[in-house]
Amino acid sequence: MSNFKAFKKGLKNGTPIFLGYLAVSFTFGIQAKSMGIETWQAALISATNLTSAGQFAALGVIASASSYIEMALTQLVINLRYCLMSSSLSQRFDTKMKSIHRYLIAFGVTDEIFGVSSAYEKENVPPAYCYGLIAASWPGWVLGTILGAVSGDILPTSILSALGVALYGMFIAIIVPPTKKNKVLLGIVVISMLLSLGFALTPILKEISSGFKVIILTLVIASAAAYFFPIKEDVHDE
C-alpha cells in the first residue's frame, strides 16, 4: 500500500477518535478553566500530552501546588500502561523501518490510537497509517479542549453524552471481530471484562486507579494466556 493510501486509511479510521476526543477533552477544557488555567495553556497541555487521565490528574496537582516530583510521579503511575502498549506496538513495525518513525509515533500512543493500530490487518503496520490516526485524533483533542475552556455550554449535554461513548464503541469494534475465529481471544475478552467488573465491585480493589488496574489485569491475563495458549507464527496474516 502506498504511503498516501495508508495515511488516508488512518485518517478515516481515526474519525471516531476525533469525535470521541472532542467530547472528552471538552470536559477537560471546562475543568481546566474552572481552576484558573488560561485557555491557551489548557490547549498547550492537551497538544503536548495527548492523554486523558493523566491530564485530569495534573489539574489536581497544579491546583494544590504540589511539588514537581509529585507531578512526575503522578504522570508516571497513571500513564505507565502506555509502556505496555508501546512494547506491544514495537512488534508491529518492520524491523527495517527508520528509527525516527518510532520516536514520532511514540507521541501518539494513546489507548485509542494504540488500539486501532493494533487492529491493522497485517503484522507490519505502515508508519503512514499511524500518522493518519494521529492527524485525525490530535486536532480533536486540542479543539475540544479549547471549545470547553472558551465556552462550557457550546455543546449540549445530550451530544456530549452520545459522543462520550464513541471511544468505547471503537474498542468494541477492535476486540470483537477477531474473537469469531479465535476462541482463545473470545475467552480473553470475556474474562478481561468480567475481572474488570470484579475489580470495580470489590471493596479494596475498586480504590485502585484505572491506570494501575489496566496494568495488573493485563500482566495477569495476558501472561496466563501466553503461557497456556502460545500463538502460532503467522497469527497476524490470516
Binding site: F114, F171, I172, I174, L185, K213, T218, A226
Partner: peptide, 13 residues
C-alpha cells in the same frame, strides 16, 4: 505482547 491489546481494551471498556 500479542494478547496485550485485547486485554487492555476489554478491561478499559
Amino acid at each position: 505482547l500479542y494478547y496485550v491489546p485485547f486485554v487492555t481494551l476489554a478491561v478499559m471498556t
